[in-house]
Design a protein around this nucleic acid. Structure first.
Lengths: 229, 229
DNA sequence: GTCTATACACAGATAGAC
DNA sequence: GTCTATCTGTGTATAGAC
């Protein structure tokens, strides 16, 4: 799949999913009118990502956010009860999109080798399209409450387990070599994360997401495929 | 090389290097007595790493640091002029140790394949021994001043270039396959970083640094070595 | 050199007018 | 629903005693 095709799928998904997604935390929001929520919450989220990714969520003041988002302090606080809640909402929002898209796209493939390639590509494409959120999610994990940190770790391990299971499945089917699949899955995850954590580097070197995907899958195949496959 | 052997080399190096290293910022420190500096500065550094790695440098207050390091606010400020300067000093300190050790150990090897393995191992061992600093350095990079950020990026790219050059050298010697060595070097770096960024994960899974090193070098060799080597 | 006490700025959050 | 004005706690940093 090309990145352009993926973008279409993603935007269709967001369209369909926007109510559940953006309104997941509806009960925590004081504002009643839906149209205000959709309009302002997205603006608040986007602005938070921009400022936080530059200097950290902790260092972003509510006055910064107020100014950049074009809403008064008072208005901001009618969308969340505290800065910490804003952080939690933002994390939830991104996680549910990621999880849904990833599962949905992997299900389409039947063969382990295809599944592996697809999982890698979709993850890369996702993190390309939602880079600010992925970066934010990684860097701010330790500012979360204990409960939310647990969820973040679960989410991290969940993705890894997807890779691990595909590798396992492939070994049984005879297409993948045996090995420590958990370790391999972890290493794959690390390579995927590098893409959104070091975006500046790859941009400077003119490496497109498709090029990176190709190089990465090549490396994984060299290591995982059974000889002859 | 085993990790234990490395630790001996490291501690010998630190011994010999401690003056230059700890006193690199000597001019910025108001305290005159050397014995006070060696004793307290190391304590300040270590404590800063512990607190910051838990909740972020920004979120660590000087009162936190004062309490945990067992020094009053006033005393703290006689070792650095501001919180920002403390950050800069800490970064410098770790960078010079890393750079020196890495260069010194790689020089020993002559064959590209050995050089590559050594570079990977030494980097892993270093980040194992100095994990708090490596983690800190990665996570707090964006809180640095513009000038210091440039230095941090340079340092990051410098390490990558070491790998790139080894790969290049090996291709000419015929032991490594051709390919985009810059991309490969970046990916190797990502895998090395995962070790100190996700230490909790590997600890939980009982993966030792030696085991990780072995797995990683195995993967790199599968991808890089020319057939027949 | 190290302490205690304090200055001063600025953070997050809310009350109440519109 | 959104604004402005303001409360209160906490942050970094320093002055001056010991």
């Amino acid at each position: 799949m090309k990145y352009n095709e993926f973008l279409k799928i993603l935007s269709a998904f967001k369209e369909e999913f926007s109510r559940e997604s953006l309104f997941e935390n509806r009960d925590k929001i004081r504002v009643k009118k839906d149209s205000s929520v959709t309009k302002n919450l997205e603006r608040i989220f986007d602005t938070t990502l921009v400022i936080s990714n530059k200097k950290g969520f902790q260092a972003m003041t509510m006055r910064d956010l107020s100014r950049e988002a074009g809403l008064s302090m008072g208005a901001l606080y009618s969308y969340f009860s505290s800065k910490e809640v804003l952080l939690t909402m933002l994390q939830h929002h991104g996680r549910s999109i990621t999880k849904n898209i990833l599962e949905r796209q992997i299900k389409i493939e039947k063969e382990p080798a295809d599944k592996l390639i697809t999982a890698i590509k979709i993850h890369l494409y996702l993190s390309e399209a939602m880079q600010p959120w992925f970066y934010f999610s990684y860097m701010e994990a330790r500012n979360l409450s204990e409960q939310e940190q647990t969820r973040a770790i679960e989410s991290e391990l969940y993705t890894e387990r997807i890779f691990e299971e595909i590798l396992q499945e492939g070994e049984i089917a005879g297409v993948f070599q045996s090995g420590n699949h958990q370790l391999t899955a972890g290493i794959i995850k690390a390579m995927l994360q590098d893409w959104y954590l070091k975006r500046w580097k790859y941009a400077k070197r003119n490496i497109s997401v498709e090029r990176y995907a190709e190089y990465l899958t090549g490396m994984i195949e060299a290591f995982c495929l059974s000889p002859g496959n």
